[in-house]
Structure formats: structure tokens, C-alpha cells
Write a protein that binds this DNA or RNA. Structure first.
Lengths: 342, 342
DNA sequence: TTGTACGCGTTATCAA
DNA sequence: TTGATAACGCGTACAA
């Protein structure tokens, strides 16, 4: 440890010489090969430590043919400021990296937003053993690009618009049911869903369906307040709230298919004098951080983020190793805050 | 394009054979070497495209000695849920990756939180040409680890407690001055700073100093409401607000050294019946997303995130290439929302 | 302008 | 249990 603190190129040959063994013995000793005797291994380890030796990963990978790396592609909206990326995706990124790390893999992260920088040939270049694509459903060009990856590409994704890609998703059906039942239990009856049944967002569709199903099995008629497309989510929520208020449709609760929409609606309704949660209850979906700061704080359905990363990684490793994955639905839970009455 | 869509291992020799040239010609043609004649280059490119050839990065790097990769280490608080990471850091991560990409570098991202997984020997292992460390100041063990990297390690960082590391930071002094002047201009006089002058958070110190300076040059006495250490930021802010309210110290405005503290204080004061922004004005620092959702929305000082990533990368590349960097202070701007009166 | 030949630092195979 | 030796696939002097 003392002395040799500078970065100098030191190879396994140097270690071999210092330990008085052959280079291949060094390789085996450090790789934990059981055929190496304990005394020899000790000598090698000691020499390696003294020389501050570290394996050159490029050489190792060249030889092995595997990289021990998973590529993570974050799809953003085109021309979107990184600051405006839904923090939900960042949490997912974090938990994905953590899950990969737990499985002994590193993560090569790239942010991609436009056709000129779409790129997914990590396996061909031997930069990674597989790829996880995380992104907003709205960047359809990106999904078109990744849908067409060559056969043999190992990958999983979060946010894909279609079921023909190797998706992992929240348990949207259960979540929406959970949300709707929560509103019913709290005494709300005229529950409107803010969202879209025809959105390319598969997730939103599923959430609407879960809501509709729960309504019907309570003997109530589902009502959908459609959002306008092409706007920011908060704005969609705000406008939907305006439309709803001005339509004359009676309502005493709102289930929004995502938290950003819920927050937009909450703000608008508050401004219009609806008292929340007494007159109108609101529940969202996603469990974003900003929900804790609204007035009142937003009740929401929160996916298990950590599980999301874990499932993405496990699904991917299953493909790489040709084994079976463990599931693609991420469990959700109800987080009760102040926007639904006690 | 047709046919060869499956991932098969194809080397430069295969391309060479297909194009009727030597392997080295392929290498040169694809690398853009000017000595190759245009017709030959065309033939090679065509063959490469047809075979779906991609360079094996491991072999290329082994040969070259450089990786074209920058490592990004995200330091988290120990045992912290990834979901609770300040979104500010994620924005920084995103802009850092983007900036690296703009300079032709890839990013190898890892999340590290505890001594058993601290690791920064990317250069020794030839996994990256340098390293960017981003993290909360509070994980002192992590900073102790990275402070001691071997000589020759190329790195820059955001969030370091000390000046002896290669830091990049917000222009805290200007920001705090900007915030304080804004409060003064809006007619507030009894301005209290919530924060700490002795915190290991260098950033917080600088912000307090900027505030104090601005107060003095307005002929006013700075007042510091010290936060308790070891708590979550919002809770620190909340408790500081309680202490302030109960101390009897007269105040009509608060400058909090970070948005989370500001939000905690805002919530507490609102609960106690202080009307914001009329009776008390509040301004924070960081420009976090949740600030837009509080009631009233939080006025804040927002660093230029994109610039932050750019400076981190530029400083690092300067070290790698032995050139001069372009600066280490990230400019900030005032974002006026509803928590300060018009 | 192009081809030949070598080496980057490992891991894996085969003998001993 | 260990050592010699052969790849892995590319980039690059040097020669032609």
C-alpha cells in the first residue's frame, strides 16, 4: 500500500515476476480458480496488492467474449431539457443500476432523444451483453428504432407503447382498481377518470381499464374525461379539470392516470374553489416526489421502484442466459396522503 | 441491410475478404484514414454495411490504450432509498451524460453508498479515461475515499465538502446575493437565513456568506437560524421555522440555503397561519421541481444544470488532455414564483 | 495508396 | 497444482 500509489501500468507479468510464478498462475489465482494452492494464491495476492495491480478489463473482455456490462438507454422527449424529465424515470434508472450491480453487472448509461443519436448496437460492438431501454412512450420514433433491433439482441424495456416488445410494467390494473376502491371506501361515488382510453400509452389504457372495471363491479358507470394530446402532463390535467368543471357533469372524485395530471387538476380545482378532499377527492398514479408538496398532498398509487429495476435486470439476464424470467409486473401500493378524505 | 439482421460475430477480416482488400485497409477505411482512396473506401463501407459489421470496442481499446469513456460515480446516502435521492442530482447526472456525449465520450454510471462498494479505479482497469463524482456532501466516508485516489487519477466532482478536491459548484455567492437583493427589492427587511455557517456543506457556507454580505451592504444585520444536523432537509427547514417563530425574533422573510429546507419552512409557517408571501416571503436555492407544486409555489435560485454537466466534463477532459479548463462556477438565475410578493 | 507483421494484456487449452 | 502457448480482434509502424 505504501509507496506505489501512483497510477502506473502494471501487468500480470509484473505480478508474476514479483510473486515468482508464471503469468497464467497469476490470472488463475486472482480469478479464484480452485486449482491454485492456498500458499501460491496468497503470494500472488500479496504481490498484486503491493504493485497495485488491476486487471485490464479490455483485454479480459476481448478474451472472454463477455463484458459483464448492461447498457441502459434513457429515451427522452426530443429537445427536452434534462431537468424536465419525469423524476420517475430517474428513480427507475437508479434502481436499475443498483439491481444490475447486485447481480455483478455494470451499467453503461446513455441518454437518447432524436433519430440522429439513436443507437443500440451494444452487443455487436461488445460493449455490453444486453440492453435495458427506459423511456417515455411518447417518443414513438425511438420505439420504432428499438423495435427493429436485429434478431439476437438481448433487451428489456420500460415504457414501450406496444406489447410486442419485451416490456416490464407496473401492475396497472391492480393499481387502478386499488385507487378506485379507495375512493369508493372513502364515500366518493361520482368518480371520473382523467386520462385516455386510446392513448398510445399502454399504461394509461390499462389504468383506465382497471378503473372502469372497479366502477362496474360497484354497480357504477365509468366516466372518462379525455385529455388533449400533445401537451405537458400537468397542463393536460389542468385542462381536463376545466373541461370537467364546465361540462356540468357531476363529480365528487377524480382518478388521474398519472400524478402530473392529478397535480394539474388539483391546482385548477383548488383555484376554482372546490375544497379538496371534502368536496372532491383526487388520487393519482406514480408516487412522484412532488406529490408530497402539493396542498393538500396527493394520495397516489406508487409502484415499487426497486422492484422495477430488479425485474428489468432479471428479465434481461434471463434472456442473456437463456433461462426463465421472474415476472414483468411491478407491484404497486396505495399511498394515502391528503387529497382523499379520511 | 436485407438478410443479415441477425447478430453474428463478424470481424474486420470478414469485411476485408468481402471487399477484396486487406484487414488493415478495412481498419483504416472505417477509421476515416485519408490515405485510403475513395473507391476503396466505398467498397469497404459497403461490405461492412452488408455484413452489419461493428468494431469490437474491447479489441480497439486494448490496442489504443484509451477508452473514450468517462466514469460517473453517484454517491448516495448510506441505506437511502434510490427514490429519495434529491432529483437535483439526477438532473445533474443527465446533463453530465449529455455533455460527455457531446464531446464524444460515453458514460459508465455507478451508484455507490457504502465503504464496501466504494470503488474508483477506472483508469487502472482501463474502464474509463477519467471519473466524475457527484454526490451529497453528507457522505463523508465517500469523500474520504475519493480524496485518497492515487496520484494520476483524472477526476472532477460535484458536492465535495472541501476545496482540496477538483470541484465544480454553483455560483453560490452570486446566487445568495441575488436572492437577498430580490427580497430587499420586494420590500422585505427582517430577512433571516435558514441554514448553517459551520456545515460541512461548503455550498451552504457560501450561500450564507452571500446572504450576509448582501445584508450588510444594505445596512442590515444578518441573522442566521441554524438548522439541526442529522435530519432530512425538509425536517431541518420545518424545525428551523418552528424555532424561529417561537424565538420571538421578528422576521418578514426567509432565505433558505436549499429548496427542501425552504419547502419545510413554508409548510410549517403556513400551518401556523403566517400568510405567504404577504406577511412572510420565502426564497430557496436549487430550483427543484417540487418547488413548482407547493402553495404558494416557491421562488428560488436555480443553477444552470446543463452548464453544470458541461463544466464537469470540460474540467475533466482538461485534466486528461493536460489542457486548461474553462471554469468551475455554474451560473445561477432567479426564478420568481409565488412565495415572494410582487 | 495498400499490404505485412506485430503486439496490446488477458483467459483458456493442453501438457507436464 | 503449475507452466508454456495459443488465441481474442483490432490499430499501426514499416515496407512496398
Amino acid at each position: 500500500m505504501a509507496g506505489e500509489r501512483k497510477i502506473i501500468r502494471v501487468t500480470s507479468f509484473d505480478v508474476a515476476e514479483a510473486a515468482g510464478v508464471s503469468q497464467s498462475t497469476v490470472s488463475r489465482a486472482l480469478a479464484g480458480d480452485t486449482s491454485i494452492s492456498e500458499p501460491t494464491r496468497q503470494r500472488v495476492m500479496e504481490a498484486a496488492r503491493r504493485l497495485n495491480y488491476q486487471v485490464d478489463e479490455n483485454a479480459a473482455r476481448l478474451r472472454r467474449g463477455r463484458t459483464g456490462t448492461l447498457a441502459v438507454v434513457m429515451i427522452c422527449r426530443e429537445a427536452q431539457d434534462r431537468k424536465d424529465i419525469n423524476p420517475f424515470y430517474f428513480s427507475l434508472l437508479g434502481s436499475t443500476c443498483a439491481a444490475a450491480s447486485a447481480k455483478g453487472y455494470e451499467t453503461l448509461v446513455s441518454f437518447q432523444d432524436a433519430p440522429e443519436n439513436f443507437w443500440g448496437h451494444f452487443q455487436e460492438r461488445r460493449k455490453a451483453d444486453g440492453m435495458i431501454v427506459i423511456g417515455t412512450t411518447t417518443n414513438t420514433k425511438a420505439w420504432d428504432y428499438f423495435r427493429d433491433m436485429p434478431e439476437g439482441t438481448h433487451w428489456t424495456c420500460w415504457g414501450s407503447p406496444d406489447n410486442d416488445m419485451p416490456w416490464v410494467r407496473s401492475d396497472n390494473l391492480s393499481g387502478a382498481t386499488l385507487a378506485t376502491r379507495h375512493l369508493l371506501v372513502r364515500g366518493y361515488r361520482q368518480i371520473v377518470c382523467i386520462g385516455s382510453a386510446t392513448s398510445p400509452q399502454r399504461q394509461f389504457q390499462e389504468r383506465y381499464e382497471g378503473y372502469a372495471e372497479a366502477m362496474r363491479s360497484a354497480g357504477l358507470e365509468p366516466v372518462l374525461q379525455q385529455v388533449e394530446s400533445g401537451l405537458a402532463r400537468e397542463e393536460q390535467g389542468r385542462r381536463a379539470a376545466i373541461a370537467l368543471a364546465e361540462s356540468g357533469t357531476p363529480f365528487d372524485a377524480i382518478f388521474a392516470v398519472c400524478d402530473d395530471m392529478a397535480l394539474g387538476a388539483l391546482k385548477e380545482l383548488t383555484a376554482r374553489g372546490y375544497s379538496i378532499p371534502d368536496k372532491v377527492g383526487i388520487i393519482g398514479f406514480d408516487g412522484i416526489r412532488a406529490g408530497a408538496w402539493s396542498t393538500p398532498p396527493l394520495t397516489s398509487i406508487e409502484p415499487d421502484f426497486q422492484m422495477a429495476g430488479t425485474l428489468l435486470v432479471e428479465q434481461l439476464l434471463a434472456k442473456i442466459n437463456g433461462t426463465e424470467g421472474s415476472g414483468r409486473r411491478v407491484p404497486v401500493r396505495l399511498v394515502i396522503r391528503g387529497s382523499t378524505r379520511a
